[in-house]
Simulated scan of single mutants.
Amino acid sequence: MSTVKKYENPFNGFPKLLDDFFGHELSDWRNNNFSETSTTIPSANIKETADNYQVELAAPGLEKSDFDIKLEDCRLIISSLKKQENETKEDKYTRREFSYQSFQRSFTLPRDIVDVENIKAQYENGLLTIDIPKKEEAKKKAPKLIEIG
């Protein structure tokens, strides 16, 4: 009886190594901006300045009234639901089409740093901007020069 040696490709682990290194973007052609239901999730930019944090969400085609922004404990939750119904009536039939577009994004805010009472939001030209001010004690102060006596 002869033994058969199974051929193993020495490069089998290489794609996994690349995936782990680059965060699953190379071999996974699905974009992270798609949810499990294949609907898009708006991309977010988060900026920090000395005075505040700013969250920008790219959400073109929506109206201000389509958004729901709320704060639960330290979580900022941004969601949207847009329904659209089209109906066509002809002689012997009616055709209705429904379209639902929704998403939800949440961000955990640092409790000791953020002034939750003064958070402001604005939607203009497809961009939702949320300004989250920092508390006075959390703002970076300019360095203090100490004179030598």
Rank of each mutant, 00 (worst) to 15 (best):
D112R: 04
E63I: 13
P133C: 01
T94A: 14
Q54H: 01
I148Q: 14
S2E: 09
Q104V: 11
V55A: 01
E36M: 09
Y7I: 09
E87Y: 08
G13W: 13
E87F: 06
Q101R: 10
G126Q: 03
T40D: 10
N9H: 05
S102R: 14
F107I: 08
E63Y: 10
G149P: 13
F22S: 05
E136H: 07
S99G: 15
I146P: 06
T37L: 11
L62P: 03
L62F: 06
K134R: 05
F98A: 12
R95K: 15
I46A: 00
V55W: 00
T49W: 00
K140R: 09
T3G: 15
T94E: 15
K144I: 13
T39F: 14
K134W: 00
E90M: 12
F14D: 06
T39Y: 14
Y53V: 00
L17R: 15
K16T: 11
L57T: 05
A121W: 11
D51N: 01
N45D: 14
E124V: 11
K134M: 00
K64N: 13
D20I: 11
I69Q: 03
Y7C: 07
A59T: 05
N118F: 03
K83E: 11
S65E: 11
S106G: 07
F21H: 15
I113T: 09
K5M: 08
E117M: 10
G149E: 10
F11S: 15
F34C: 03
E48V: 00
E117I: 09
A44P: 05
A44I: 06
D73S: 08
K64V: 10
C74F: 14
A44M: 07
D51Q: 00
M1L: 14
L62D: 05
E137Q: 09
M1W: 12
V4G: 04
E56H: 01
G126S: 02
D66R: 05
D20M: 15
P15R: 04
E147P: 10
S38N: 13
L26Q: 02
T129Y: 04
N12I: 10
V116H: 07
E72T: 06
N118P: 03
E124Q: 08
C74L: 14
K89W: 06
N32V: 12
K139I: 01
F14C: 15
L18D: 07
V55T: 02
